[in-house]
Deep mutational scan, measured.
Amino acid sequence: TRVETATETAWISLVTALHLVLGLSAVLGLLLLRWQFPAHYRRLRHALW
């Protein structure tokens, strides 16, 4: 049971790290898009909202 718990903890930390990385890359990508294509971003936002 001790090994299982350790594996579970490792998986949880791995998944958390993955989610953090994905979230950060998504935010960075959005910022980059907004910085590179302001007109396109505004049009996209206008279409979405």
Score class of each variant (00 low, 15 high):
T1N: 07
T1I: 13
R2I: 13
R2F: 13
R2E: 10
V3Y: 01
V3C: 02
V3N: 03
E4V: 13
E4K: 11
T5I: 01
A6V: 05
A6H: 07
A6K: 10
A6F: 06
A6N: 09
A6W: 05
A6Q: 13
T7F: 09
T9G: 12
A10H: 08
A10F: 03
A10D: 07
W11I: 12
W11Q: 00
I12R: 08
I12Y: 09
I12V: 12
I12A: 10
I12D: 00
S13W: 15
S13K: 03
S13T: 14
L14K: 01
L14D: 04
L14Y: 04
L14G: 00
V15H: 07
V15R: 03
T16P: 04
T16D: 00
T16R: 00
A17V: 10
A17C: 13
A17R: 05
L18T: 03
L18R: 02
L18Y: 03
L18H: 05
H19V: 02
H19A: 04
H19D: 02
V21N: 00
V21L: 12
V21C: 12
L22I: 12
L22Y: 04
L22H: 05
L22E: 05
L22T: 11
G23Y: 02
L24C: 08
L24S: 04
S25M: 05
S25V: 12
S25E: 01
S25T: 13
A26V: 11
A26G: 11
A26K: 05
A26M: 12
A26I: 09
V27A: 10
V27F: 12
L28P: 01
L28Q: 02
L28E: 03
L28S: 02
L28N: 02
L28M: 11
G29T: 15
G29K: 02
L30S: 09
L30Y: 07
L30K: 02
L30V: 10
L31D: 00
L31V: 10
L31I: 12
L31P: 05
L32R: 04
L32V: 14
L33V: 09
L33C: 15
L33P: 06
L33A: 12
R34T: 08
R34W: 05
W35A: 15
W35T: 15
W35D: 08
Q36A: 15
Q36N: 14
F37M: 09
F37K: 03
P38H: 12
P38L: 09
A39G: 15
A39W: 10
A39M: 15
A39Q: 14
H40V: 08
H40P: 15
H40L: 08
H40G: 13
R42W: 10
R42P: 00
R43W: 08
L44A: 10
R45Y: 07
R45H: 07
H46S: 10
H46Q: 14
A47I: 08
A47V: 10
A47M: 09
L48N: 06
L48G: 02
L48F: 07
L48W: 06
W49K: 08
W49L: 06
